[in-house]
Amino acid sequence: MTQASSRRDLLKGAVLGAVAIAPGLTLIAPAAQARPAGSAASAANRWGLLIDTSKCDAGCTACVDACKTEMGLPALDRPATDAQYIRKVDVKDPKTGHQHSLPVMCQHCAKPPCVDVCPTGASMKRADGIVLVDRHICIGCRYCMMACPYKARSFAHEDQSNQKAHNPRGKGCVEGCTLCVHRIDAGGRPACVEACADTGRAAMIFGDLNDANSEISRRLSKQASSRIRADLGLDPAIRYQGI
């Protein structure tokens, strides 16, 4: 490699890096426009992810780390009770020994069991398909955690501090992946997707499943994909390839 080309690479890297650290900027692959202030989330959109597991390395935790930073989830070193919005699952076929790895988070189901079972309506689905916990009325009964097939929810087992302004969270309520709703509303894409593009192998793409022209819809219309526990009929918004 010559001096010149390595300098060019360096510059390219710097530009990409600058783009990466400015969330909400729509320089590369704009996922969406920021919704105008005062307007509600719309059923015209259905936000989702497509995750290509063939590009997901077993040891890579870029998405998980990015989520923890973005959402202000502390590591208290209590794995059984620490909050986890996204995790890397290693899957092995016991017959053949074939292994692959993939991130699992809230699957933002179209028919979410957590919403069905919630007694107060705290567990809710926004018009654009994002499943959230309204922690203003969550009583901490944990029935949604019993009902979720994906183990996507955590319970805040202790007092919290250093919360991010965009992710208020506190003891006694249930929480989970918000699909980075604060970024989506500002026209951005989820932190895990961004981290995967930056430091991983760009295994995740984010977009509008209702928009036929979005990258995610075009890919899904041409390539095979599947859902985790598709048999349950919940119609998750997170699609996978290679599982």
Partner: peptide, 21 residues
């Protein structure tokens, strides 16, 4: 506003706790 923002996704209205802070 908390219900509007949380449940409807309406952002940028003026009575925001974030702005109070």
């Amino acid at each position: 506003q908390r219900d509007d923002t949380m449940r409807e996704g309406i952002r940028g209205a003026k009575h925001s706790l974030k702005d109070c802070v």
